[in-house]
Design a binder for these strands. Structure first.
Lengths: 340, 340
DNA sequence: GGCGAGTGTGAGAGCGCTCTCATGCCGTGC
DNA sequence: GCACGGCATGAGAGCGCTCTCACACTCGCC
C-alpha cells in the first residue's frame, strides 16, 4: 500500500530530471542518454510509479481499450463455448498489445442505444462486433461511431459486398460443408440428405451452399432437405421427417453437432445402424461430438484463432489511418470418426 | 460523422451559460433553474455532446470501470456455459449503473503480473474475481490493489474464514448435494455411491460434504466413492469402478452433469436400466442434462443471478467507503427427471 | 576560432472536465 | 430603507499527462 500513486512530477523530482524526460523514458521515446534513462527507470521502480491512464488518454486521444460487442440471442451464447473461445483469442491478442478488452453484451433496444452512445463518445479506440442477425443495427452503430471495426462472422445486409471498408473474419463454412459432403460421396453414399440450421444465419446458409456445391445442384432436392434450428430436438425431428420420405436417405449432413446428435437419437430409436444404414456428419466439433454414440464425424473450426485474427486485423486498422486490412476466412477441417 | 466531439465549452457557448452550469446539468447536480436546465439539455442534444470520460475520471478519480478477472483453466471455461451466464448477469447489473466491464482472462504467470500491475495502477474502481485454484495469487493481487473486490465462488486459502473484509458469492453446493442425495434416499435407495469432481475445487468438496450430511457420515464409505474429474470420460470410468465392487451401488450421485452422463453411458453398456437398476443424479442442469437418455435428474443453480449479485455487492462497496456487504450464498434447486 | 548541424533536456501550454469559491441577485425582516 | 441570508451562476484552478518548442551544449568542419 505504498504512498498513494506517485505522479510523473514525483518521479522527476526523485530522479532529478524534468517531467518531460521521465515521460520520454516511460514511453520508450528515443533521445535520452542511456545513463539518465537508467536513473529514471530506477526511480520509477523505487516509487512504484504507474502512469495515470486517464491523464494520458486525455491528451493522446487514445484510450487503450477496445470494445467487444456481442449481440446474440441468449440461446446461442449459452449453447456452446463459442464465445468463451472467441474471447480467449481476442483477449490474448489484445493484452499482448497492451489493450484492454471492454465487453458489451447487448440484449435489448436500450442496450443498442447505450452501446451506440458509448462508442460515439470515443471511449474506445476500436470495436469488435458479433452478430448473426440479418439486419442488425450494429452495422449502423459501427459506422456512426467512426471507429475501426472488425466483424465476427460474415455480415449479411443489403450491399455488404460492395462495402470496401468492411472487415470481417469468418470460418470457411462453405468449404467445411464441402469437405463433409464430399466425404459422404467418397464413401459411396448416394442419397445424401441435409438438415439445415436457421436460414437467417450466414453460417447455416453457407453450409447449405457447400452441400449444393458438391452435389452440383443450385438448390437442395426438397426430398432430401429438412429444416432444423441448431438444437438437438430440431435435429431429431428433422431426421424423423427425412426417414418418413421414400426412398429414405442413406446419409445425412447436419448443420451442427447438436442437430447431428438429435439425428443419431432418432436413428437409434428407429433401430437403424450408424453408419451402416445411415451415415451422419455434423459440424463444429464441440466436445460432445466425440462423446456421442457413435462418435461424430464432423467439421472442426479454430475459434480461438478466429478471435486472435479479429483482434489482429483491428490492431492493423488502429495503427494505420488508412484501413488496408482485408477480411479473413479461416480454413476448416474434417474430423473423421465413426458416424460416417 | 458530426463535427468531431464538442466539449463542455462548446455546449456552454451554445447555450449561453458557463462551463460549470453545463457540468451541473450533465451530472444532474441540483441548483440550476429549471428553464436554464432545459436550455442546456437542448444544446447538449443539438450538438450531440458526450462527456469525455478521460477528462472526467482525471479529476474525479473514478474510472467508471470494473475489472472481471477470470483465472480458470481452459477446460473449465470452455466445458460449460458457466462464464457466459455469469458474464451476462454481471454485464446487466454493471451497465444498469453505467459501469463498464473490463474483461481480463489470465492464463499464465505473465498474465498475473500484468493484471496485478493494471489493478494497482488504479485503472478500475473495483474487481470481480473468479478462480477455483486452492491458493490462487489473485487473492494477493486483489489485496495489493486496495480495490473493492468480490470473489465468485467460495474462496479457499488458509485462514479465509477469518478475513472479515472478504466478500464472495457462491451457489449453495452443499445444500444442492443434500437435496440430490435426500431424493435418492426418499426413493428407497440404500447403497448410494458418489462420484466426486477434483477435490481441489471447492464446488466438488462442498458437494461431497452435502452427500455426507445426508448419509450422516463424516466421510464417504470408500466402497461407494469414486473419483472423477468433471469430464464425461471420468464419469464413465468412475461408474465402471463402482460397478466392479460388490455389492454394487443402487444409486449414484455424480458431482456434475458431464460425469453423470458418462455414468449413464457405462450403465447402458453394461445393460443396466436407469433408474430401475441404478438411479443417477447429476449436478448443474446444463442443457445436455435434459437431452441425455434418460433425461437427468439434477441440481439447478442460477448462475446469471450469481453474476448479478456479485456486481451488486461490488456496487455497494464502491459507494460506501466502509465495506459492509457480506457474502451471499445462492440457493439451489433439485430438478427431477427420469434418471432418478 | 567561429559557425552550423545535431543532439539532449527543460519549460510550459493545454487536453476536457469538476469543484471550490466568489459574486450577484432576490426576498425577507426589522 | 437597509442589512442579511439564501440561492443561482460564473471564474478559475488544477487533475496528470504529452508534446511542441526553445534552449544549451557538443562536435566537426573550414
Amino acid at each position: 500500500m505504498s504512498a498513494a500513486h506517485p505522479t510523473l512530477e514525483a518521479v522527476a523530482a526523485h530522479a532529478g530530471v524534468s517531467r518531460a524526460t521521465v515521460s520520454r523514458v516511460v514511453n520508450g521515446t528515443p533521445g535520452v542518454r542511456p545513463e539518465l534513462r537508467e536513473k529514471v527507470k530506477r526511480s520509477v521502480a523505487e516509487l512504484g510509479y504507474v502512469p495515470n491512464s486517464a491523464a494520458r488518454s486525455l491528451v493522446t486521444r487514445r484510450t487503450g481499450a477496445v470494445a467487444v460487442v456481442i449481440a446474440e440471442p441468449e440461446t446461442r451464447v449459452f449453447a456452446d463455448p463459442f464465445f468463451a473461445r472467441q474471447l480467449r483469442g481476442i483477449s490474448r491478442e489484445l493484452s499482448a498489445n497492451d489493450l484492454q478488452l471492454l465487453l458489451m453484451l447487448v440484449e435489448d433496444d436500450a442496450d443498442y442505444q447505450r452501446v451506440g452512445r458509448y462508442l460515439a463518445g470515443g471511449h474506445v479506440d476500436g470495436t469488435l462486433m458479433f452478430s448473426l442477425h440479418v439486419n442488425d443495427p450494429l452495422r449502423g452503430i459501427a459506422a456512426a461511431s467512426g471507429l475501426p471495426t472488425v466483424f465476427g462472422g460474415r455480415p449479411w445486409w443489403p450491399g455488404w459486398e460492395d462495402d470496401a471498408s468492411l472487415v470481417y473474419v469468418d470460418t470457411d463454412n462453405r468449404d467445411g460443408a464441402r469437405q463433409a459432403v464430399r466425404h459422404l460421396v467418397d464413401r459411396g453414399h448416394r442419397r445424401i440428405a441435409v438438415i439445415t440450421g436457421p436460414l437467417d444465419q450466414t453460417s447455416a446458409v453457407d453450409r447449405l451452399a457447400g452441400y449444393c456445391d458438391v452435389l452440383d445442384v443450385p438448390e437442395p432436392d426438397p426430398a432430401l432437405h429438412a429444416h432444423g434450428d441448431f438444437t438437438l430436438e430440431g435435429g431429431a425431428r428433422a431426421m424423423a421427417e427425412l426417414l418418413d420420405r421414400s426412398p429414405a436417405p442413406d446419409a445425412v449432413f447436419a448443420g451442427n453437432d447438436l442437430m447431428a446428435t438429435g439425428a443419431l437419437r432418432t436413428l437409434r430409436a428407429r433401430g437403424l445402424a450408424v453408419p451402416e444404414d445411415v451415415a451422419v456428419v455434423g459440424y463444429d466439433d464441440l466436445d460432445p461430438a466425440a462423446w456421442s454414440d457413435p462418435p461424430l464425424t464432423t467439421v472442426r473450426q479454430d475459434i480461438v484463432r478466429m478471435g486472435e485474427i479479429m483482434a489482429r486485423l483491428l490492431l492493423e486498422n488502429l495503427n494505420e489511418p488508412e484501413p488496408k486490412a482485408r477480411s479473413v476466412i479461416i480454413p476448416t477441417e474434417l474430423v473423421v470418426r465413426a458416424s460416417a
